[in-house]
Design a protein around this nucleic acid. Sequence first.
RNA 1: GCCAGCGUAGCUCAGCAGGUAGAGCGACUGACUUGUAAUCAGUAGGUCGCAGGUUCGAUUCCUGUCGCUGGCUCCA
Length: 649
Amino acid sequence: MQVKVRLKDGSERALPQGATWADLAAAIGPRLAKEAVAARVNGQVADLSRPVEDGAQVEILTLQDPEGLDVMRHTCAHVMAQAVKRLWPEVKMAIGPVIENGFYYDFADHAFTPEDLPRIEEEMERIIRADYPVEREVWTREQALNYFRERGERFKVEIIEDLPADAVITVYRQGEFLDLCRGPHLPSTGRIKVFKLMSIAGAYWRGDSSREMLTRIYAVAFAKKQDLDEHLRRLEEARQRDHRRLGKELGIFMLSREIGQGLPLWLPNGAKIRRIIERYIVDLEESLGYQHVYTPHLASVELYKISGHWEHYHDDMYPPMQMDNEQLVLRPMNCPHHMMVYRSELRSYRDLPLRIAELGTMHRYEMSGALAGLQRVRVMTLNDAHIFVRPDQIQEEFSRVVQLIQRVYRDFGIRDYYHRLSYRDPADTTKYVQNDEMWETAQRMLRQAMDELGLDYVEAPGEAAFYGPKLDVQVKTALGKDETLSTVQLDFHLPNRFDLTYVGEDGRPHRPVVIHRGVIGTLERFIAFLIEQYKGAFPAWLAPVQARIVTVGADHEPYAHEVEAALRQAGLRPEVDARSEKIGYKIREAQVHKIPYTLVVGDKEAASRTVSVRRYGQGDLGAMPLDSFITRLRQEVDSKALLVEPGEA
RNA sequence: GCCAGCGUAGCUCAGCAGGUAGAGCGACUGACUUGUAAUCAGUAGGUCGCAGGUUCGAUUCCUGUCGCUGGCUCCA
């Protein structure tokens, strides 16, 4: 008996009944046989030891394939667990999945310290050298439950108990070690190439903060040592870009215990950048029909009772202050105030869309462990707006907001981001505002708008707010964490809570829909992101100081001030360094501060009314007439040119 | 908030068999008067996060506390 399989190049191959995928690899070639780690069979990754299936579409995977690499990482996780069990038999195992660049494993009943990591690594090396075959076994539910119960592996027992009745329960064995696992795995432990244990962290069992806290060991694993070295180099580079480090070095912001946790001070350089961005976005929004308002940072608790925040968002708010006969809270959101702005007049269908905007400062009680530099703070200013639309205007207006976001990202040179459309969970619609038709229509409109704009997006069912679907624009921080920068959320709820209406063509009251949107997001997070994205080298239009004028000698100070005055006259931001230091020293300092232009002025320049120009990231550009330089910088500012293109410097 | 680690001069860090602290950069002072990424010399600056405890003696060991960092949960 022969079975036939189809390979990825479209050719067919016959194998004897009972052959394995490993046999197939061997039949294709000795080199592939050696490098094979798993097989992709009809789209599913399987062990090489599994029997071939007649008619299957199959591809032999090596460590060159992402899935092959993941198989190795998964096996490596088992090896780590095996090493841990050898060193501390009392440890209980939870789960050990593959993640980006590596894997982790969660353990209980032992307090790990960083000093344990090298010991675990040594034991892992021993297991890899022993080259144990990794063998798959199918067990019955009873067999599995008994085995793990006897050993007190409470997490494994819980996992098995939660498996559906018809689930095939498999375990993988390597040497004395055995773990419940769906697989697939490498044929043997010796096939693991390079790995490194990175860190220890706490993690809740099943991600539930009401349950046991486990100890998680994070690790990375690669096919080649060079890949590991490259990964470590990237991590080091990311540390250099960390906005907390650069924010301090460049005098952008500070945090201190005396002021309070998560309450940043914007230092002069940071305040300058922030002010420029604030002006930019307010001007842009006003040109697009947004109306900016100012509303108070404090509000009566009653306002949040109307909005529903008091009931649902209470834990994230600072507690009320009782003054006279009022209870006041620091606002955690601006929405209720803007609802009141809407309600301040009778609105007609002709008034919509009505775009109410504000740089709204808000206070939220964030958990202390969540705070991080400017990325996560307790006081933040949101580039907020609430757009009141008729249901038939949702798609058009949503599209306009998305285009605004695109425009802003272009201006800031932000290229590395993705869109995420969040829908309600189709499996459980009960936790959302009840209005099936509205949800379906709105979700369809968001999709359509994105499609019409030709923008890619990922869909996230179950990630919607309870009051409506949304679009988030996600970026990565220097340390690789996903973060929301911009957000556009539909809201079917607040208009009801505030009983908002507009007079329709029919002369009757109708309910508007609200679009909440933050384009810059919060200035705190946005600027944190920019610091990392620019590596601190802000483009000329944003730089707190655009040109530092450096004197060669003491005689040149008067001319330096003339240059300074000329730049200032042109609306630019110059600064003079006339200290009696060597020119090289002053230039170095200007470069270290990542100032876009350093202008050297000495005898030659003073005599010819020129400046010697050095641009950050490019070096010495030679001398040019002062007027030409002003034109050049002016042009650079007006065009919002980036200082350093991605990949440069 | 939870788990773990860390907390030494303005900054980056050394000091880890317990004997009241060091370096580089920065700051200040003086000399040098400078031509494209660090001139030389000198000076000042620290209750070693804070509070207890152990000890003849604690930056060093223990406990608590505050803060920071990584992760979890949460989130702009």
